[in-house]
Design a protein around this nucleic acid. Structure first.
Lengths: 183, 183
DNA sequence: GCCTCATTGGACCGATTGGTCTAGACAGGG
DNA sequence: CCCTGTCTAGACCAATCGGTCCAATGAGGC
């Protein structure tokens, strides 16, 4: 119980902080303060230290995003409508907290030169997202589903970067507007 | 002479490293080793320390990208052709060095919570890029030039993030392919 | 009551961080 | 030849970094 609780607290705190300040911008002390736990707990649950925690946090956040993609597309009558709904869902998701968080993968990307194991994590999370979109594109009868999935992923990533820079959800809203126009 | 030389060396070394490992992923020692200069030189040319150096490096790299945008669009017969050529130019630019570098703005984005002055830098560099694209869009008679500029900027950013993650220029090539298809 | 084992609390470590400071190298003008 | 101002060289600093270690805690089975 307290096991899952503590581990979960650590993962959530780490995810929140990494997505705001990046892997190397956050110290263990800050994560532990945010989680309200001592250092011993961290190295009990994550013997691999900061790197293992970052891996877990990225995958956890990645699964959340994937769920948004899956559920939103699952309720869509067509690929185009799904893509539009995803933009709106992302705008909402990103506006939920006090700050607009960056893409979880982005947060660890620049740590790869120092922590090579995170490379696989990044690739796998991105892979699951495009696979998820591509599967729905195929299901909805969209021609060239993988190309369509790549195209949407690229636009979402671009809008996310700019939204993070501006600390505003409007890039997602503008992207939605654009998709609505090309519908 | 040696003034401009040293300052320039620092800016280039800092830009290269920041774009690979992010602002907080690079220590001053590493930058100084890469530049072949002692700490005294850094604080002579940049009394503001790491933050001022990062600001200068980001603006310097931002100007280089802007030049690519401006020249590529300047030689294009239409906005669509220009957008396509920019993708190819970015693919080439990103493949030039030993590693695929991240967008210079991206490198400082996650340092903003700790170094608030960098927020303006990020906004201004992004602003100049979209302004540059929008100006060419208007010149080439493209309707809704600002919307077109935003759309292209989003796609370039998205492709850049994925290219950085994969350490490969193919995302830019795929984006070019997509633009060629919608031409 | 006691034993066991998962978990916590936090002192402690060497290395590295960004930043300060000063001594001197060196060129150009007088 | 010396003076002046620019620039370099690097010792030094407190603070923080990620990581290690072990004693204390406390719930559950016996």
């Amino acid at each position: 119980m307290t096991d899952l609780d503590s581990r979960d607290k650590l993962v959530r705190a780490a995810s929140r902080l990494f997505r705001r300040k990046g892997y190397s911008g956050v110290g263990l002390a800050e994560i532990l303060t945010e989680a309200g736990l001592p250092k011993g707990s961290l190295y009990y649950h994550f013997p691999g230290g900061k790197q293992e925690l970052a891996d877990a946090a990225t995958r956890w956040a990645g699964r959340q995003i994937e769920a948004v993609l899956d559920q939103t597309f699952g309720a869509a009558p067509s690929f185009e409508a799904g893509a539009l709904a995803v933009c709106e869902a992302m705008a909402a998701a990103v506006s939920a907290g006090a700050h607009v968080p960056a893409c979880p993968v982005l947060s660890i990307l620049q740590a790869v030169p120092d922590e090579p194991r995170l490379q696989r994590t990044a690739e796998q999370v991105y892979g699951r997202w495009t696979d998820c979109i591509a599967a729905h594109a195929a299901r909805l009868g969209r021609p060239a589903p993988r190309e369509a999935a790549f195209s949407l992923h690229v636009r979402l990533q671009g809008a996310w970067v700019i939204a993070f820079a501006q600390q505003s959800a409007t890039p997602f809203a503008l992207l939605a507007q654009e998709l609505r126009r090309t519908l």
